[in-house]
């Protein structure tokens, strides 16, 4: 099944932002913002212990500065992961927040991605960095990575929902939602088969398809968010291989 296989052919955002095609640039930036705005916002809230409004301004300001200063063009995949690079850029930006605030006023609305800050704030309820403690660089990296994986998976789930809708497989997505996106430990294929009045084998096949597509979509998005093949393989191992590693 060649269609299911690698290599991913979509451009990396790092290459795409250098494109001369403005539409391609915008698409790349939107992809990047969609994946990173929530991790950045939550990171600013917790790592820098900033109140909600400040964190919102800083998040928008950071992405504006990223555009103004062409930070992505300065990223070198050989030196670090894109995720780490962006986190360090956020640190440096927040440390310089007064200047950042001015920039935010000039270009804070440059992204086309709707930033749902109240939702992000709600998600922070269970966050685990203790602002009173001195977090280690590892715990900060871990926190940022966890939020980034959450953001990546949420986008992939949304893409999967759209795909299922396009292919008239809404029931498959509902099964996926009920089983894989549920916190219910008691859920079983048998229970789903009974609820949906379908054989267990159909539930198995539907979930198998949905998971394969979810994995493919998540990896495609991940490929876009990496600066090199090597980084992609490392990140793919961290995101999916970490079940194994």
């Amino acid at each position: 099944m060649p269609g299911d296989q690698f290599p991913i052919t979509r451009w990396s955002v790092i290459d795409a932002v250098k494109s001369e095609d403005p539409a391609e640039q915008t698409r790349a930036l939107d992809t990047l913002f969609a994946a990173y705005w929530k991790p950045v916002y939550k990171y600013v809230r917790l790592r820098w212990n900033r109140p909600t409004e400040d964190a919102q301004d800083l998040t928008q300001g950071f992405f504006a500065e990223m555009l103004e200063r062409d930070l992505l063009a300065k990223y070198d995949p050989a030196k670090s992961r894109l995720r780490t690079y962006l986190r360090l850029c956020v640190d440096s930006f927040v440390m310089n927040q007064e200047k950042a605030a001015r920039r935010q006023k000039r270009g804070g609305n440059a992204t086309h991605v709707a930033l749902d800050f109240p939702a992000a704030e709600g998600e922070l309820a269970g966050a685990t960095i203790d602002p009173a403690s001195i977090p280690s660089p590892e715990s900060l990296e871990e926190f940022f990575e966890r939020e980034w994986v959450r953001s990546l998976f949420a986008l992939a789930v949304e893409d999967l929902r759209k795909l299922c809708s396009e292919r008239e497989r809404e029931r498959t997505f509902r099964l996926f939602d009920d089983y894989d996106l549920s916190d219910d430990e008691e859920i079983s294929y048998e229970r789903l088969a009974a609820e949906y009045a379908m054989p267990v084998t159909d539930v198995t096949n539907a979930l198998s398809w949905a998971r394969r597509e979810f994995r493919r979509i998540a990896l495609e998005r991940l490929r876009e968010l990496c600066g090199s093949d090597e980084e992609f393989h490392r990140e793919a191992h961290a995101v999916f291989g970490s079940d194994a590693a």
Binding site: F153, D180, L181, S182, D183, F214, R215, D243
Partner: peptide
């Protein structure tokens, strides 16, 4: 967009890794 709890992320990660042996 649906919020994914830590537990859901882990579950997704595990289930998406299940090999499709068809």
């Amino acid at each position: 967009m649906k919020f994914l709890s830590d537990k859901t992320v882990d579950r997704l990660r595990q289930n998406a890794n299940l090999p499709d042996l068809s």
